[in-house]
């Protein structure tokens, strides 16, 4: 929902240098963070950041609002949990791969149905499909219904590194989320991503230029669903349990809020937004305000939509572009 500007070569170079510096600084922070903050909390942020980035690939770069992304987060989590609990010989990375594959497949099914309608219908269809998935998980015997799936083993990475150590787990999660983020970044900056831009800005024109718009949308949807599933799968291994919360429509709403707060259509926005929301849950969860979470998140939603549509990163970017040419 923001417009990209084309820069002359020199500006482009200085912009790229700035981006590289920022990226390296953030990476350095991520590498030292577990020695300063609680690793489990950081891993939660990382998983939700990846989830929000996956969601933003659709909303920010194709202009499609999915109201059913919780289904992919939940599916990734449940299938990974099921695989790791059932087959004790399975290493965690294979379990995560299985969960991701399941979410990708579900994304293909959802995508084939949902891209038949546009705009507001797209949001309603994804929401309804996700609700159907939720009811299936509620009744299916393997998920443990409302109790959730407990005692998922973390296991040994590649059969070698014991992930019961939180620090080892943290660097594994960091590697997964970083790869997911870089994949999204690569997708957005590729020729494929440029066509997605074109579809977002003017779909009829993209069609008249000869692009198979439906196929592009579908592929973007499947990639987004797969990465959301990867986030859910990783989250299950970290917390050793999977629950209905991750598949509920509240979660679909929350990921929209994370993206909106950080900045729709910016690469780092979802990371910032999800960090803030997870932090808010962490701080308020134990306090008297915990039961008012819905009101607080709802109010942030309304304020973001009314006054703050570019999000935090969007505003910083605008500021930087205006002042640091």
């Amino acid at each position: 929902m923001t417009t990209s500007t084309l820069y002359p070569d020199t500006l482009q170079a200085s912009r790229q240098r700035r981006q590289l510096q920022l990226g390296l600084a953030l990476l350095a922070i991520a590498l030292v963070a577990p020695f300063v903050a609680y690793p489990i909390f950081l891993m939660k942020i990382l998983c939700f950041a990846l989830f929000a980035c996956a969601f933003n690939l659709l909303l920010g770069y194709v202009g499609l609002l999915s109201f059913g992304h919780a289904a992919f987060l939940g599916t990734g989590g449940y299938i990974t949990g099921f695989l790791l609990t059932r087959y004790s010989g399975l290493t965690p990375e294979l379990g995560i791969l299985g969960g991701t594959a399941a979410a990708t497949l579900l994304g293909l099914l959802f995508g084939l149905l949902a891209i038949r309608r546009q705009g507001i219908y797209f949001a309603m269809i994804t929401l309804a499909l996700a609700q159907m998935t939720f009811f299936i998980y509620l009744q299916a015997p393997f998920t443990g219904g409302e109790n959730g799936m407990h005692g998922v083993p973390r296991g040994k990475l590649l059969g070698l590194i014991d992930l019961k150590n939180d620090l080892a787990m943290y660097y594994f999660v960091l590697a997964i989320c970083l790869s997911g983020y870089l994949l999204i970044r690569r997708t957005v900056n590729s020729p494929f991503g440029q066509v997605l831009y074109a579809i977002r800005e003017n779909e009829p024109r993209a069609i008249s230029l000869g692009y198979n718009v439906a196929a592009y949308k579908l592929l973007a949807f499947v990639i987004s669903a797969g990465i959301a599933g990867l986030a859910g799968a990783t989250k299950t291994v970290v917390f050793q349990f999977a629950s209905l919360t991750d598949a509920h429509w509240h979660m679909s709403g929350e990921v929209i809020l994370m993206t909106l707060l950080g900045g729709v259509g910016t690469l780092l926005g979802p990371v910032v937004g999800s960090s803030l929301v997870v932090w808010l849950h962490h701080v308020l969860g134990g306090s008297v305000l915990g039961s008012w979470m819905g009101t607080i998140l709802g109010t942030i939603f309304v304020l973001c939509v009314l006054l703050f549509r570019d999000g935090l990163v969007g505003y910083v970017q605008k500021f930087v572009r205006r002042n640091l040419r």
């Binding site: 609002l65 705009g119 507001i120 949001a123 709403g253 929209i256 909106l260 039961s291 008012w292 979470m293 819905g294 009101t295 998140l297 709802g298 109010t299 942030i300 939603f301 309304v302 939509v305 009314l306 549509r309």
Partner: peptide, 21 residues
Amino acid sequence: HLYSLLLTFGLALIMQNLFTN
């Protein structure tokens, strides 16, 4: 129009939570 949808979604969250509390 997606913003209006999100605005009403936020309001629904607020109302539901308010009455729950």
